[in-house]
Nucleic acid binder design. Structure first.
Lengths: 134, 134
DNA sequence: CGGGATCCCTGCCGATACTG
DNA sequence: CAGTATCGGCAGGGATCCCG
């Protein structure tokens, strides 16, 4: 369990810094994948490369604006790549880079935890709210 | 690698739902730990239980308001517990629950990924920005 | 088809002041 | 000590319109 305490220390060492968003690696990652759409985009691209319209239809309730912005941010951090084919009409394909693919494994750990525990969380939540009303 | 594609499918199955914040387990988790302070609080409590003031000093640049709110939210989801000692002046101790402790392992995976790759991300980022200016 | 530009509104979060 | 209450800024994100 030493790699766990190691991770704890790695975060603890960044407590109290001024701009966590820029100095702390963990905050950097969570600012990226913790937003509303990044995980859905990454997980969708994990299956296969997608064109812009395909992503839009796959995620369905994402706005065009946020899909564009999310893709740009992920591309900026090197997690996915953008390939333009000069056809008519134009087509653009997005795919995970190696760096992006390497994020899938730790992310899958979180996803499995979420699916395994979300019923326990919901129980705790409703119980807490019920107690609060008294 | 089947448990990875399993996680991909678990997220993919939640695409296109109406209220992701309430229906999708993954969104539930990320809405909690993806906010500005939750991880710092959880990681600090991972070392040992802390009193309110200890947490405030340990994290340092968290406001009193956000510490209170973050603690309440984490308690509501059953990730930590609150113990009041009726001393004078009053003292309150926060500690991880078993549920909260079970989150440490998957979270550590993300933390290690972040620390291992953040230099690569920074390189990609500055390179992207430089290319954008031309 | 794959975006860019604008408008606008909600909710996160910080600062400050007050309480048992 | 361990909170609660209130005000306000501003960034995240949705809706809409437009373009090559």
């Amino acid at each position: 369990m030493s790699h766990l305490t190691e991770a704890v220390r790695a975060v603890a060492d960044n407590r109290g810094r001024k701009n966590l968003g820029e100095t702390c690696p963990v905050r950097n990652v969570l600012n990226r994948i913790g937003d509303k759409w990044s995980i859905l985009v990454l997980m969708t691209l994990a299956r296969r490369p997608h064109r812009f319209g395909e992503l839009r239809r796959a995620i369905a309730d994402i706005s065009q604006r946020m899909l564009t912005q999310t893709l740009r941010d992920l591309q900026r951090d090197g997690l996915l790549s953008r390939h333009v084919f000069p056809t008519n009409p134009p087509s653009v394909e997005y795919r995970l880079t190696k760096l992006g693919a390497s994020l899938l494994r730790p992310m899958a750990g979180l996803v499995r935890w979420a699916n395994a525990r979300h019923s326990a969380i919901n129980r705790a939540r409703t119980q807490f709210d019920r107690a609060a009303r008294n």
